[in-house]
Amino acid sequence: MSILEVLNREKIMAMIRGLRPDTVDRTVEALVQGGIRFLEVTTNTEGVYELVERLRQRYEGQLLIGIGTVLDADMAAKSIDAGAQFIVSPNLDEEVIAYGLRHEIDVFPGVMTPTEIVRAVNVGAKAVKVFPTGSLGGAAYLKEVRAPLDHIPMIASGSVGLNNLRNILDAGAIGVGIGGNLVKRQWIEAERFNEIQKLAREFMDIVAEFQAQSTGFLLSSSVAMEDPQGSRS
């Protein structure tokens, strides 16, 4: 499966930003035990490149690991050398997208407007990160912008939590990036890693419910199309 196919199935991309090195391992393990299969580690995390290289070795086959807050082609090069399986940016940088294309690594650039969304895809992005989703209007904005652009896969990032995850998914997001609303710094500092695991499971339960209902709807629609008179017989 491609990166996007897996993201479309798993939905949740947990983001690690600025954690102390001595807390990262237990945090990632808690996320994995909670069902998380996508991890973004940002470049403003100490030792990010060495960290990603180590996590790739430890969680091979369990996690897809990318590097976020990639702002230029040099950072993209370092990310790929470290083993990043995808790259995420808060902005639209065409050089970063081009570098990813040359190395067959998906780049998810941050975009706000329809113009940026279309531009990103035109220069080679397979999906875009709508950021900051919360400030833009959340699910309502995503739904509106997808109306004319529903052929473009969109990842929602910014202020996504348990309270609005389902609405964001219903609005058509292929996946969501979640940082502090999942990787809670106060819990990490208090070594309450079991709480992070439990919270991760709550997020994944919402995803499972959404996927089950979406599949059921598709199956029902398929039956109706195959036998349009079945309900009348």
Rank of each mutant, 00 (worst) to 15 (best):
S221L: 01
L71M: 11
K143T: 00
L169E: 03
R146M: 10
A147F: 13
F86L: 12
F108P: 02
A30V: 10
A77F: 03
R9G: 04
Q213V: 07
T69F: 12
D205V: 05
L4G: 10
F108Q: 10
D72G: 11
S2Y: 06
Q213Y: 11
E189A: 15
G66W: 00
T215K: 09
L149K: 10
E202W: 11
G172L: 11
L64T: 14
A147S: 11
K78Q: 14
F131P: 03
N122A: 01
V28I: 01
S159F: 08
I97P: 04
G175K: 07
D170Y: 07
R146D: 07
V41E: 06
P114V: 02
A98I: 00
V70E: 06
G216L: 05
E94I: 03
G68R: 07
A82I: 04
E116K: 13
I117D: 10
E10W: 04
S135H: 01
S221Q: 05
A125L: 10
G66K: 00
K11W: 02
A73N: 12
A200K: 07
D72F: 05
P228Y: 13
N194V: 01
L7P: 02
V48K: 10
M15L: 15
L136G: 00
G158C: 01
F131W: 08
G177P: 09
L169C: 06
E104I: 02
N194R: 06
E50K: 02
A212Q: 14
Y141S: 04
N167T: 02
A73Y: 06
L63D: 01
Q186F: 00
I12G: 01
E46W: 01
G216V: 03
D227R: 15
V176D: 03
S135K: 09
A77Y: 05
L19Y: 07
Q213E: 14
G138Q: 05
Q57N: 09
E46V: 06
G216I: 03
A120P: 02
A84F: 11
D205E: 15
A200W: 05
E189F: 04
A14C: 08
V107K: 13
D25T: 09
V70N: 10
T113G: 01
I188R: 14
R54V: 12
T27D: 13
V6S: 14
K126D: 12
I87H: 02
E209Y: 12
M1S: 12
V24R: 07
I80M: 14
N163V: 13
S231V: 01
M1E: 11
L136I: 07
G124Q: 02
N163A: 14
T115S: 09
R201H: 06
K143M: 05
D74A: 09
A224W: 00
N122H: 01
A98Q: 03
F38Y: 11
L218R: 12
R201G: 04
E226A: 00
V48L: 12
A127P: 08
D93H: 13
I80C: 09
I97F: 07
V207S: 03
A98M: 00
